[in-house]
Nucleic acid binder design. Structure first.
Lengths: 354, 354
DNA sequence: TTCCGTACAGAGAACGATTTCTACCGTCCG
DNA sequence: CGGACGGTAGAAATCGTTCTCTGTACGGAA
């Protein structure tokens, strides 16, 4: 009819294929699905027609009829965050293995956009919506998340919290965490075991931010376990950026604070610390030991290579997808973290007894 | 009817909203679209029903009826590639600004998967399919790409080649490139202008790979322009990895090849070079100058900070989306590259005349 | 020979939204 | 006073699949 038909620029439909093969649309659909007996000859004719018309099914129509959208949404703050790429890799790989597509959305930490994104995913009938990255803590935020979880559940999709704490008992959400506090505990213990007693903590210190809260908790618990009294002055609040690492280190040196080691809450912070220490003529690890957290790719490139805590990023992503698609399995999992020892730590020098 | 209806766990449809508001489905649709006069009272009733039922439209049904899917697909080799995250950021940002969703797919360099992905995107009615990263060169591959471009065009979506050369005149594809050869030319010229005459090239050397071909071309053109005869022994073929950078540098040192500078075809290669040179006791830039390409985040963290070529990654992604959605504009654009000078280059020492 | 089961194919009703095309009701103007 | 018109609203077709009914034909068993 239309001009489109004439020059063949309209995409082919089952009906077109059916006409070309001299069968009914139903038969074409059955050949495609392969779940219903179709005579060999008929099947061949249909398949040839499909090839000749270069037919591909219309995913929307299929979903509309009752199929699954096969989409997994991956929601994060910022694609360029150093470890997010690895979580994304895990998500993407697992999604592909399971025959799903992967949608990616960023929020820039804006709760409004987070809401908008989740709504968009409800419209799209996404099978799972994976929220990644340390979120805020607090009753208001928690309630909001619970509402999202329920709304998604009602729309037939699943909310997955990746690297965030659970919302509560009967909330329909999947949680994939890593042992944040344990990693901080382990690496602080390592420093303490090397004789360090005055260990600076550099990073975000916010009670309503899960990541920083847990890292500090592990840091303090290690002190307790070693029976080391902790000097509150050694916690220098800031954020998780390299710039802060540089600034804080300068302040520390200028103030003449006594310390033998620095626990940077993030490898990025640690990078800033190393840079500034070197510029100030302090040798690492001879004069000061430094550790980070996250084991981002950069960690092996800074000088000296950084002793840090490894997060199972890729596995985190894979697990998120895997669990979301298997409602029967446990919907809460905590993956382990472990420290990786490189060159930025040395035992504290025994006091001079000369 | 079903159990789902009873406990309200089925998602609401226009019909449900219509019933709740005491109007027809058509009216609900019109309130949603807002493009048709609806009496104020009626509109209010409908909106209240929408809120109460927590209604969201079914994207699939909407697309099926003739709307656009609003999806942009982003296809790359591997999400964890150092510069891809920035292209992805550009794509995602622009897509969001234009009210589109962003689908991400990886191919791991497998042409089969590339095909599968494009087919999937045809099924999804994606508005644009952005292929990013240096592809292969060659007639067979080119023909395959042309077929993909036409297939997508027929399905109403647009193929975008991002960082790859054009396919030819009347192929329905958008091309967003950066001046690969120009960057290589500029940075080699920089080394030559600093007096370097024996400059090693380390990286992939494959005639059928666009990126390496152009980088070598720029490297050679600079030599020509400076009237410096180029010693073919200075080209050490390999790949684009850090491991190769380390291996090649060791070989170079072991062989006793004379050189004063190294042009690593990639910052990752350069990172390996720096590492190995330091381990071997060669100082950079005092003994050897080193440059890279790509300006990945790592470049400022290696020691010494790397002089390299900046690729407008983020803008590349934004342009890809922008052009794909504006058929009226020119569908081929070449973005500029420029060198960024840091600390890894020094003029060659004048020959000792003692 | 009759009957039934099986293999195969088509007709037609969904799915949920949009969008014609119609239709109604006042009101205004001739 | 009658017809036209603007403002609203609904009925029904439509998008491309899938899937449930029906229905036919053929082969074998009774």
């Amino acid at each position: 009819m239309s001009a489109e038909d004439v020059n063949g620029r309209r995409r082919a439909t089952v009906k077109d294929v059916a006409v070309a093969a001299g069968v009914s649309p139903a038969t074409v659909s059955r050949v495609l699905a392969g779940d219903y007996p179709v005579a060999t000859g008929t099947k061949a004719r249909v398949q040839r027609a499909i090839r000749e018309l270069d037919y591909v099914a219309n995913a929307q129509a299929r979903v509309l009829k009752g199929g699954s959208s096969g989409m997994i949404a991956f929601v994060l703050d910022d694609v360029t965050g150093p470890s997010f790429a690895y979580v994304a890799k895990g998500v993407e790989q697992q999604a592909t293995e399971e025959g799903r597509l992967c949608i990616i959305c960023t929020t820039h930490g804006d709760p409004e956009r987070e809401l908008a994104v989740v709504d968009a995913m409800r419209e799209q009938h996404a099978e799972a919506v994976i929220l990644v990255g340390g979120g805020l803590v607090g009753e208001e935020y928690r309630q909001r998340m619970i509402r999202l979880a329920r709304a998604l559940d009602k729309a037939g999709s699943r909310l997955v919290l990746c690297g965030r704490p659970p919302l509560g008992e009967d909330v329909p959400a999947t949680v994939v965490e890593y042992d944040n506090e344990g990693g901080a505990f382990a690496i602080t213990s390592f420093l303490l075991s090397q004789g360090h007693r005055r260990i600076v903590y550099l990073g975000k210190v916010a009670d309503n931010h899960t990541t920083s809260r847990e890292r500090i908790a592990g840091y303090l618990r290690a002190h307790e376990l070693f029976g080391v009294e902790h000097d509150p002055a050694l916690i220098v609040p800031g954020d998780f950026t390299q710039a802060y690492g540089e600034r804080a280190t300068r302040q520390l040196l200028a103030a003449g604070t006594a310390f033998t080691a620095i626990f940077a809450a993030t490898d990025m912070v640690a990078a800033g610390v190393l840079r500034t220490l070197r510029a100030a003529g302090r040798r690492v690890p001879e004069d000061v030991s430094v550790v980070g957290y996250d084991d981002i790719p950069l960690a092996i490139h800074v000088v000296p290579a950084l002793t840090t805590v490894r997060i199972p990023t890729e596995e985190l992503g894979r697990a998120a997808v895997r669990l979301a698609l298997r409602p029967a399995e446990s919907q809460h999992v905590v993956l382990g973290t472990h420290i990786v020892v490189r060159e930025s730590v040395r035992p504290v020098a025994p006091p001079n007894r000369g």
